[in-house]
Amino acid sequence: MNPNNLEQDKTAKHRLISKVLSPALWLFVRSQVEQVSHLEVQIASSDRQILSGSIPRLSISGDRIVYKGLHFAKISLMGEGMQTNLHQVMRGQPLQLLEPMVVSGEAILQETDLNASLKSDLLSSALTELLSKLASSNNAVRGQIDWKQIAIAPGSLLLQGNLVNSSHTTPITLRCGLQLSSGRKLLLTQPQLQISNSWEELENYVMDLGSHVNLKELTLEPGQIVCRGSITVMP
C-alpha cells in the first residue's frame, strides 16, 4: 500500500474526528446544563487515543451557568480519563460517557447566584432538610419554609425565610459559619436560629456531600463562595 495513501487516510480520519467529536463533546456538556452564556470545551489527546474513544484530558470553562436550578457565576474544570462511544458518535449517535470520570477545578457562586438558586427545589429542599436536622428538638420548626434570601460574609452565611404552617407565617433566620471538615464533609459552626425575635444556639453539624466529592478549598468571601476540588461524574 502506498505510504502516501496511509498518511492521507490518517489525516482524513483526524479531520473527521475533529469535526465530529469536538461538536459532539460540546453538545454533551451543553446538554448537562439548563443555561450557559459562554461555554468552551477543549480536547487534549493523541490521534490513537481519540480513535480508541479515549480522551485523557479535556478542559471546560463557562460563565453564567444554571445546573439543576443552581446558578454559577463561573466554572473552570479539567476532566481526566474520559471514555466515549466514539464509533457510535461517528454514525451520528449522541456522545455518551462509558466510565466514571474525575473532574477537578474551580466554581464561583456569587450571592446573586445563590439567591436565584433559592427558586430551585434542589436548594430550597436541601436547606429545609438541613434546618430540620439542626433544630430537630425544636417543635416550632415544623411546616414548609419559603426561603427568601442568602447573605455571604467572610466565613459565614445568613439565611432568611418564612416558616409557613396551617395557621400563620413566621419569619425565620439561620446564621452559621461554614468550613471544610474533610474532602467530602462540610462543618457548620456555631449555628444560631431565630424564630420571630427569639434566638436559639444550635449544635455544630457535619454535612456529608458523598463519596463522589473531594473538595480541597472552600472560601467564603464577601458576596461569594469559591470552591476548588474534584467530583466523580458517573455514566
Score class of each variant (00 low, 15 high):
118 L>C: 01
76 S>A: 14
82 M>F: 05
8 Q>F: 13
39 L>N: 00
227 C>T: 09
162 N>A: 11
87 H>W: 12
125 S>W: 09
168 H>P: 11
197 N>R: 13
42 Q>A: 15
30 R>H: 11
160 Q>A: 09
186 L>V: 04
48 R>D: 11
102 V>A: 05
95 L>Y: 04
128 T>G: 15
6 L>T: 12
186 L>Q: 06
105 G>Q: 06
96 Q>K: 13
167 S>K: 08
62 G>C: 06
72 F>Q: 02
229 G>F: 07
38 H>Y: 10
148 K>M: 13
132 S>K: 14
122 L>W: 04
120 S>P: 03
104 S>I: 02
162 N>P: 05
10 K>R: 15
194 Q>L: 14
92 G>H: 08
23 P>Q: 02
218 L>V: 00
128 T>P: 08
88 Q>G: 00
70 L>S: 01
23 P>E: 03
186 L>C: 08
233 V>F: 04
167 S>Q: 10
156 S>K: 12
77 L>Q: 04
197 N>W: 06
112 T>D: 13
138 N>P: 07
100 P>K: 00
68 K>L: 14
226 V>I: 10
167 S>H: 07
135 A>M: 11
91 R>K: 15
45 S>F: 00
34 E>L: 03
176 C>E: 07
147 W>M: 08
22 S>N: 14
228 R>Y: 07
109 L>Q: 06
76 S>R: 10
181 S>V: 07
12 A>Q: 14
220 L>H: 02
155 G>M: 07
235 P>E: 03
39 L>S: 00
90 M>L: 15
80 E>Y: 11
172 I>G: 05
235 P>C: 00
66 V>W: 02
63 D>N: 08
207 M>R: 09
2 N>M: 11
92 G>A: 09
226 V>K: 04
157 L>N: 06
144 Q>S: 14
194 Q>H: 07
139 N>C: 04
63 D>E: 14
104 S>G: 14
228 R>M: 06
166 S>D: 15
156 S>E: 12
16 L>E: 13
155 G>C: 08
134 L>I: 07
14 H>S: 13
174 L>W: 00
89 V>A: 03
94 P>K: 02
181 S>L: 14
8 Q>Y: 12
74 K>Y: 11
99 E>C: 01
217 E>M: 12
93 Q>E: 15
6 L>P: 01
80 E>C: 08
7 E>H: 09
